[in-house]
Amino acid sequence: MQPLIPPFTGFGLGLRREHYAAFLDAPMPDVDFVEIISENFMVEGGRPLVVLDAVRRTLPVAMHGVSLNIGSASGLDRDYLARLRALADRLDPLWVSDHLCWTGVDGGNSHDLLPLPLTAQALEIVCENIHQAQDALGRPMLFENPSSYVQFPGDEMPEWAFLSEICSRTGCCLLLDINNVFVSCTNHGLDPRAWLAGIPADRVRQVHLAGHSQGSDMLIDTHDAPVADPVWALLAETLPRLGPVAVMIERDDHIPPLPEILAELAIARAIAAGAGGLARCA
């Protein structure tokens, strides 16, 4: 098994096209790292890679994907893995992450983070796919808990136990999305604090914070609004349990001017300070 991913402590943002100019101009926004959507840069050339290379010269970059399809029963896409590896080799990122989900099967693709049944059979398949992905990338990965809108009647374990198992079986680490915990637990009538108490805290390397919306029947993970108060509260309660982590705000729709997101990041900094500060790397 590959060694665990070394931790990184700091506060960051998702690098979005609307804010490219700000990250290319001096003074650089006050962040410790940026996260990119990997697929946006798995391209042959052009402006996206020029911008990314320039940003990478001054900031650490975390790669976050949405199309690895780690839970697919029909296996992983080798071309995708090769392109992901090429981007990782180019960037030397903090880490490469994706979601505990599936996006398609038999070549079809939903371009959504679809839910996995929490069964022993699914666990076997996910772990086999994680081993394959980590071998192809030559590095261990992080996996994020997605928001979910269904629970399968045949589930055999809670999501936190599933995440804990993939960590122990594959050596991967976790990207803890606290908004997703809140959304999923609210939708399924679960206790987010019990959920958070169950995960292996020492495997969390990154924390995502984002906004959600109220749908007609349930909460929807829309990334189009400021972080909600209950999510800030969960962050404050969770941070003291975690080791060194990278904390960031995600915004993918209704993207406001950069100062507004930096102000939100300042709230995360203040909450972390109030909780005794982020643990430092050894």
Binding site: H111, D112, Y149, V150, Q151, N187, M218, I220
Partner: peptide
Amino acid sequence: PPSMHAGLQVYRNAYRARLIGC
């Protein structure tokens, strides 16, 4: 099962909205 219908509709709506939005 009926317990999944509302959630499935969320995924159906997201699929269609994402592709047309693209």
